[in-house]
């Protein structure tokens, strides 16, 4: 397959910069697969699994928040967090899930706490599901 230029960059650094054949990410409107020669495209990202195929090798990652942009054939993925499946700390995700669960069960929790806990739960679940597939 024809490769295209892919850059993945997060606040923690440049994670990927090179050719790739396919990129699959969860956008706000659902999963989207990007192949070479895609039309100019902009989408905010949701939380979910991302897949990068390069040189026939398939790598999965947990990808959360941020945006995806295709401009003139070059693809730029700018998530808030992006973790390769092998780098995910599954135990930490499990602990985070339990903590979030406790807050969600708590009847006295404030609205903002509940929102934060919900986001945390979502992140933890995404991380766990990505980590379990490695």
């Amino acid at each position: 397959m024809t490769p295209f230029q892919l850059r993945i960059v997060t606040p923690d650094g440049l994670i990927y910069d090179g050719p790739a054949e396919e990129l699959l990410v969860r956008t706000s409107g659902g999963d989207a697969a990007i192949l070479a020669r895609h039309i100019d495209y902009v989408a905010p990202l949701g939380m979910g699994q991302a897949v990068v195929v390069s040189g026939g090798r398939r790598r999965t990652a947990a990808c959360m928040g941020g945006m995806l942009s295709v401009q003139g054939g070059a693809v730029t993925l700018i998530p808030t967090t992006f973790e390769w499946a092998e780098d995910i700390d599954a135990e930490r995700a499990e602990r985070s899930r339990q903590r979030a669960d406790r807050i969600l069960q708590d009847k006295d929790a404030s609205q903002t706490d509940l929102q934060l806990a919900q986001a945390r739960l979502h992140r933890a679940l995404v991380r766990k599901s990505v980590a379990s597939q490695k």
Binding site: P11, T27, S28, G29, A32, I39, D40, Y41, V42, A43, P44, G65, G66, M67, Q71, I78, T80
Partner: peptide, 28 residues
């Protein structure tokens, strides 16, 4: 010729992206 395709409504996309952009720039 080709205009950018936005996921969903263009306005919505901007509304979602701009806070992210601002946060990222601020962090940098």
């Amino acid at each position: 010729r080709c205009d950018t395709v936005y996921e969903g409504d263009a306005e919505e996309v901007f509304a979602a992206i701009v806070p992210e952009y601002l946060g990222g720039i601020l962090y940098g």
